[in-house]
């Protein structure tokens, strides 16, 4: 193989990749935050003793667990506008897809954390005379959070990688920008190697931060 590597044209357009890199981070953070909100709403519904609340949440979650992520992107971008008769910006459609997906998974993460708390903890708190709200706030949730942290982080990493699907909606994320650079330079090897490394740096940095957060949140164990 006598391919001569040349990163020159890629480096010359590095500003395009930098924009994509920042957009990837932006869409990931926004989707994680919205996903947490969706997840909290879903888990409250899911754990409710009222069937008319728990069932829709269960169906929603199952729907997302059993359909490919890219279908959600297409649905929000191409299908939802038909229903609403307004077209959605790629960014908005991608955020909707990512945050509902991650919300469905976060709901399961939250639920797993809460139901994993031993019955004795609920009883110990109840026996002191705590209301349900107080025992959740003071006893169950603080302990559940430390157990939720590892699966929550894992799920957020999945989301971070899934953001690349936003490129299919022509959102200017890192992958989409790479496609643009490639179209201008015809240097796929250099371009896609570069962005693979950029994703790697992003995820490794994020995992270091996550490890710090995890250590703080699980300190008592």
């Amino acid at each position: 193989m006598d391919y001569s590597w040349d990163f020159g044209p890629v480096i010359a357009r590095f500003d395009m990749l930098a924009i994509g890199f920042l957009n990837t981070i932006k869409i990931a953070i926004v989707s994680i935050l919205l996903g947490v909100v969706v997840g909290l709403v879903l888990v409250l519904m899911r754990l409710s003793p009222r069937k008319w609340l728990s069932w829709p949440a269960a169906i929603f979650i199952e729907f997302y667990r059993n359909t490919p992520p890219i279908v959600h992107f297409f649905w929000f971008f191409y299908a939802l506008p038909v229903l609403l008769s307004v077209s959605l910006d790629p960014y908005v459609a991608a955020v909707l897809a990512l945050s509902t997906q991650s919300g469905a998974f976060y709901a399961e993460v939250f639920r797993g954390g809460i139901v994993s708390i031993e019955r004795g903890q609920w009883e110990g708190a109840r026996a002191l005379g705590m209301t349900h709200a107080a025992l959740m706030r003071r006893i169950i949730v603080p302990q559940a959070i430390s157990r939720m942290v590892p699966p929550f982080i894992e799920r957020s990493f999945e989301l971070l990688k899934t953001t690349a699907l936003a490129s299919t909606l022509a959102y200017a994320d890192l992958l989409y920008q790479a496609m643009m650079v490639n179209a201008e330079t015809f240097r796929p090897l250099e371009v896609y190697t570069t962005i693979a490394l950029m994703y790697l740096v992003l995820l490794v940095t994020a995992s270091q931060l996550a490890r710090l957060a995890e250590a703080r949140l699980t300190a008592y164990q």
Binding site: E123, G124, A127, L128, P142, Q143, Y220
Partner: peptide, 13 residues
């Protein structure tokens, strides 16, 4: 009416 359990049920956090 206070209660003491077999498994203590202290709050570990």
């Amino acid at each position: 009416v206070g209660m003491v359990f077999q498994q203590f049920n202290l709050f570990p956090h």
